[in-house]
Amino acid sequence: MRPEEKKKVLFLCTHNSARSQMAEGLLRAIYGNRYEAYSAGIEATTVNPHAVTVMKEIGIDVSNQRSKAFQEFQDTVFDLAVTVCDRAKAACPICSTNPELPTRLPRARGVIHKSFEDPAAAVGSEEERLRVFRRVRDEIKDWILQTFEE
């Protein structure tokens, strides 16, 4: 499949630090031959080091990804936008592909909402926090396998 035939998917989250970053890396690694994966947040921060660690454990390097605000994609039309947390769903509405609408927001032909627990909110020891990141990573991976399988 040529790059121009790949479907563009945007994962949206609150800070684009963990869930959306892991989803971007997972989709790219699993179905990168069919999809172009992107991620953004309501506001950009930094990629959570725990997300980098747990992704590396399964052979996916997201250390070169960066946190981005959704406004960076205001001129891009995605085939699908996926909000991976309730706050992103409420705070970052996705515009339709209607050319009459303003383009300050990302546009998508389709939108899916699938909320995952925020692993960055985990408390406890380092190992306990990593355990939460691993669980959320695995939940996102399973969801991607089921949702994007053709």
Results as ranks from 00 to 15, higher is better:
Gln21Ser: 08
Val54Thr: 01
Glu72Tyr: 07
Glu72Arg: 10
Ala18Phe: 07
Lys89Tyr: 10
Phe116Gly: 01
Ile30Phe: 07
Ile30Gly: 00
Ala81Pro: 06
Lys7Ala: 01
Phe70Tyr: 15
Cys13Asn: 03
Leu10Ala: 02
Ala37Glu: 02
Val132Cys: 04
Pro49Phe: 13
Thr14Cys: 03
Ser39Trp: 05
Asp75Leu: 14
Arg134Phe: 11
Ala69Pro: 00
Val9Glu: 10
Met55Asp: 15
Glu43Ala: 14
Ala51Cys: 10
Lys89Val: 09
Val9Ser: 04
Asn33Gly: 07
Phe11Ser: 01
Asp79Gly: 08
Glu57Cys: 06
Thr46Pro: 00
Arg109Glu: 15
Arg109Cys: 04
Ile144Trp: 01
Val77Pro: 00
Arg104Gln: 14
Phe78Ser: 03
Asp118Thr: 06
Ile112Phe: 08
Cys85Val: 07
Phe11Met: 12
Ser125Tyr: 09
Ser67Cys: 11
Gln65Trp: 11
Val77Asn: 06
Glu57Val: 08
Ser115Cys: 11
Cys92Asn: 13
Phe70Gln: 03
Arg107Met: 10
Gln146Cys: 06
Lys6Cys: 11
Leu101Pro: 08
Leu105Tyr: 12
Val132Glu: 05
Phe73Trp: 09
Asp118Ile: 02
Asp79Ile: 11
Lys114Phe: 06
Glu36Ala: 04
Ile112Asp: 01
Thr14Phe: 10
Ala69Cys: 05
Glu150Gln: 11
Glu4Arg: 05
Ala29Cys: 05
Arg129Tyr: 05
Phe148Ala: 11
Thr97Phe: 06
Leu80Tyr: 07
Glu127Phe: 05
Gln71Ile: 12
Ile144Leu: 06
Gly32Gln: 10
Cys95Gly: 14
Ala44Gly: 12
Tyr31Asp: 07
Asn16Tyr: 09
Lys89Pro: 00
Thr53Ile: 06
Glu139Phe: 09
Gly124Ala: 10
Glu149Ile: 12
Pro106Glu: 14
Asp138Ile: 08
Val136Leu: 06
Tyr35Phe: 15
Ala18Glu: 06
Lys56His: 13
Val123Glu: 14
Val77Leu: 09
Phe11Asn: 00
Leu105Ala: 13
Arg129Ile: 14
Glu127Ile: 04
Glu43Phe: 14
Leu26Ile: 12
